[in-house]
Design a protein around this nucleic acid. Structure first.
Lengths: 203, 203
DNA sequence: GTCGGGACGATTGTAAACAATTTAATATAC
DNA sequence: GTATATTAAATTGTTTACAATCGTCCCGAC
């Protein structure tokens, strides 16, 4: 999720056992699960490699994310309780501080927590879970956008605007903010991808 | 998916090994995967049991399904090629024949194939996969609706109407058909659930 | 009669060894 | 020098055995 392992990199079961202090049974389990989530690709008898997403796949994933995240903000009961708003504010302070400290790991988690806290307000457990799964598919690409401080600053401002819209009960603004907030990441990834491989396709 | 295993039933790894002629490693893998899909529940050191869905969970799952299936019909390129329509017609003949023969297993598969063939037309692989996953969560409840022949006949008519709307390129009708087609199953399940446990909740 | 504790059986979780498969390297023929 | 066959190493897939855990049954104390 931090983009430390690059696409195509091989994931050898024995190595992962030592890395995570466990036995091959659990590593195997995890690799199958990650395959099911679309994060790694497994080839029988050859093992697992980190999957790289084509621009098309990224576009498709984000289209579904947008549909579902907008749905969440559409069904979310307004107004939101003050205690919930306080919780969001708290998470957002962590996010903001992490950006100031250049602590990317903390940024990652605070950002994740913030969005999960927002979507949990919608009350539909299946929707929340599905959004979470789609987020997981694109953990690896966020770092293409977050390389620029402008992107991080913009995310921070977006979050504050979202809290504000929640407090004001302005559903229309909320939906529009949700839409806009999703745009930069796939755009940055696709630009980077095309710089790497040319506009055609795979390397 | 046929509702043969009832909710709360224990799934013992060793039994499943003999049932499916394989070793515990793979059975274990499958159980973890089914847990991730929400079909079984696993309690550490105690094993897996068939999960039963509360009316609330079913309602939530179907709400997300409706959102995504409508999205699929919204983005689906029209008109549909005649070869695709022929394919759909062929699958639908299998479905219809299976109903006439009271072959529930064949009904199940033909119905699945039909819907997958329709949604594949939308061209968004992530969307298709997500819809498939949500379908899987409720495999077990369809049989509450299919107990009545009226429901099966209605499904058959719906399918023919869907093919017709696809041929005519009538997107509005298609969306409405998709919505209506999703309603009976959860309704029948919830009615049956409330008959079992009373309107309150768990047994 | 009921409550608490201990032993037993069943089941899951972990570890290690073994078999099968694939990749890479080396040697050999042309 | 290139292409092909052979062999060895690395890695995954499977099997087996063992350890840990949980539920149940039974017994005894109160």
């Amino acid at each position: 999720m931090l983009g430390r392992r690059h696409p195509r990199e091989r994931l050898v079961e024995q190595d992962l056992c030592e890395r995570f202090q466990t036995h091959r049974g659990d590593v195997r389990l995890a690799l199958f699960e990650l395959e099911q989530k679309g994060i790694v690709q497994r080839i029988p008898n050859r093992g697992a490699i980190v999957r790289d997403l084509t621009p098309r796949e990224v576009t498709e994933i984000y289209a579904v994310r947008e549909e579902l995240e907008v749905m969440a903000t559409r069904i979310l009961p307004l107004p939101v309780a003050e205690s919930e708003l306080a919780r969001l504010g708290e998470i957002q302070q962590r996010h903001s501080a992490a950006i100031d400290n250049d602590d990317m790991l903390a940024v990652f988690y605070a950002n994740l927590n913030f969005h999960e806290a927002v979507f949990e307000l919608c009350g539909n457990a299946c929707l929340i879970e599905t959004i979470r799964q789609l987020e997981a598919k694109v953990y690896g690409i966020r770092f293409y956008a977050n390389a620029f401080t402008e992107a991080l600053d913009r995310a921070r401002r977006d979050h504050l605007d979202i809290i504000d819209a929640l407090r004001g009960g302005r559903r229309g603004d909320l939906i529009e903010l949700t839409r806009q907030h999703l745009k930069p990441s796939p755009q940055a990834y696709i630009r980077a991808y095309e710089r790497r491989f040319g506009n055609a396709g795979r390397e």
